[in-house]
Write a protein that binds this DNA or RNA. Structure first.
Lengths: 189, 189
DNA sequence: GTCATTCGTTCGCCTTGACGAACACCGTCC
DNA sequence: GGACGGTGTTCGTCAAGGCGAACGAATGAC
């Protein structure tokens, strides 16, 4: 299975580590896991050694046997409690002074979802250019009132209201009352 | 590459569809994408036909060439605006009357992250049994005050405070003031 | 019309992933 | 001691994945 010159190579070491940790966390031996997944334990041994270039079937069988989502194959980090107080956190740059987004949780390598806290004041609407394809934004208004959603079809939200919309097209956030606050989850699967 | 009797087989059709849509969305031809990814166009053709059992290298090369996160290989759905008003949404069952979780956004197939709105009153702490390995919970307190986090090491949050902690061990949510509200993102990569 | 260029598919060959047996290793029991 | 049952590793064999050339179809230039 020769492979021509490609750009970057898959993170086998990362996957290998994930598999090994997953197996040990489940308290399984190589033999046992290989049996459950229906693959040869030699194959599994090589994979955990970071060698080779596994096929989709093999990876899938291992994921289901370990009850791991397929997407969890890449990434090690195991966090402990992390707290960001109300007045902390790095604000995201914005040309407008009446709109402030605070990054709460950036995606670890293998990107999936960012959490922001939005603080906005009435004024000119804050419009965002389309993001990468597949991005979905979730907004939950916690205080005030705002017009949120696709630029061509926004929705007015009151406290407690929730809205989700495609982020890969132009969209707006326009505060309608002073001290408007919201949670924004930007999901770029 | 024979495969012994395993449980479920990988969703090749889904991956095939994702690849084809991704390629067409990028406006690339089979030849062009194959060249960029450094694979043979015949291989790509077969993959988009849902045939075969691609190797990790092949899939990775395609993902990087299409600028798709590896985890986005499974799932099509493209949403429009979705709104859940403050008094809407299905409440999640809970034995305790003073703790209510409202599901805002469930993961589409290929699961990754759920969004909840929490409404809680002071009383007995709401403890959760450990979830699947790898789960991370994010909490952003929007009103009131609460003790949140791992059962053995919780943190007190005030409005605007944010905390993230592993969800695969016992954890608590204990309201300290009436009408306590929070956003909870359960992330199971 | 013909040539040229692109598209996506199909075919034969070669490489390589996956299998299974054999292997070395370690602890336990008799 | 040595015979077990368990671990994870290495090796030879076979089938399947990936490659590249050849293919038919569709389009545009001249």
């Amino acid at each position: 299975m020769a492979q021509a010159g490609s750009t970057s190579k898959p993170p086998m070491n990362s996957i290998a580590a994930t598999l090994r940790r997953g197996r040990q966390a489940a308290g399984l031996s190589l033999t046992e896991l290989a049996h459950r997944a229906g693959i040869a334990k030699s194959t599994l041994s090589q994979l955990e050694a970071g060698q080779g270039n596994p096929s989709l079937e093999t990876l899938w069988a291992l994921c289901t046997a370990l009850e791991l989502p397929f997407s969890r194959l890449l990434d090690p980090p195991r966090p402990r409690v992390q707290v960001i107080r109300a007045d902390e956190g790095q604000a995201v740059a914005s040309a407008q002074a009446d709109y402030r987004a605070t990054l709460l949780s950036a995606c670890p390598p293998g990107a999936r979802r960012d959490l922001y806290r939005i603080d906005a004041e009435p004024g000119t609407p804050h419009t965002s250019a389309p993001h990468a394809p597949g991005v979905v934004e979730h907004v939950l208004l916690t205080a005030g009132r705002a017009l949120v959603g696709p630029a061509d079809d926004p929705v007015e939200l009151s406290p407690g209201d929730y809205a989700a919309y495609p982020g890969d097209q132009a969209h707006v956030f326009e505060a309608r009352e002073p001290a408007t606050q919201a949670i924004l989850a930007s999901e770029y699967l």
